[in-house]
Design a protein around this nucleic acid. Sequence first.
DNA 1: GATAATTGCTACAGTCACTAGAGCTTCAAG
DNA 2: CTTGAAGCTCTAGTGACTGTAGCAATTATC
Lengths: 138, 138
Amino acid sequence: MLSIGDLSKRTGVKVPTIRYYEQMGLIAAAERSEGNQRRYERSDLERLAFIRHARNLGLDIPAIRELIALSQHPSEPCANADRIAADHLAAVREKIERLRKLEHELERIVSQCDGGHSIEDCYVIRALSDHGLCESEH
Amino acid sequence: MLSIGDLSKRTGVKVPTIRYYEQMGLIAAAERSEGNQRRYERSDLERLAFIRHARNLGLDIPAIRELIALSQHPSEPCANADRIAADHLAAVREKIERLRKLEHELERIVSQCDGGHSIEDCYVIRALSDHGLCESEH
DNA sequence: GATAATTGCTACAGTCACTAGAGCTTCAAG
DNA sequence: CTTGAAGCTCTAGTGACTGTAGCAATTATC
């Protein structure tokens, strides 16, 4: 039986975050000791590792909840799990695309300004004031 | 003199967002009509366009506040403006890096699962359960 | 000029995934 | 048996808005 602190140390998930996941319904409400403290088993360790891993990959809590629900029906088809991951991948790719454009624009703006003159002539400020100086929409 | 709705239509910034920017000190509190409604001038249009442009580039509100303050001292050196933009560019690049790694890992996970079998054998679920199946740390 | 539709006002709650703090109780070690 | 660490609940704060409620003012139509 592990205390919440033990579970935290073993999974790298902070104590308040574990309680938060319980509140969000990602992990079952733990058994309690006589003094009302949470006591965990090995299976909670695995569950929490699953959650942490999914969060590290950027999945949000509803998606994780759904994946957990799915994982509890081993004989069901896995199309839904596949879809969740694929949708997330698509979202990640969109974010990258968007950030790439920003990177481009910022690169261009920064490269025209070496910080060695006055605000009056500063390309950073001018570019922000006048969208016409931009190459792409954003 | 423009109403807040006019200003909104002309800049593409939503009405509540304009009020929010006022509250955050990005735009001066507007003059009011007899009936206590905000009335704006041409200069507010420009200011708001500046803010919107900076937000579109991903700059946060404290950064924008600083840029606005800088822009009001035209003869000061522009090193600070340059630094804000360069720092932001660096942050964008870091985000892209991180998302690239996620993309890679998700790609790998998704490609091993065609959605045509059962949860039991689902690579998406297995990969989330077992970090050892991952190629990189995350 | 009356009425109706739109727009505006303030203030507060909600978003997401936590994180921090207050004020208290329980536990483990010496 | 005492002390300090760890645990408990509850509330509020993060960032940049967005949505809602309940009004007041303005504009358009008749």
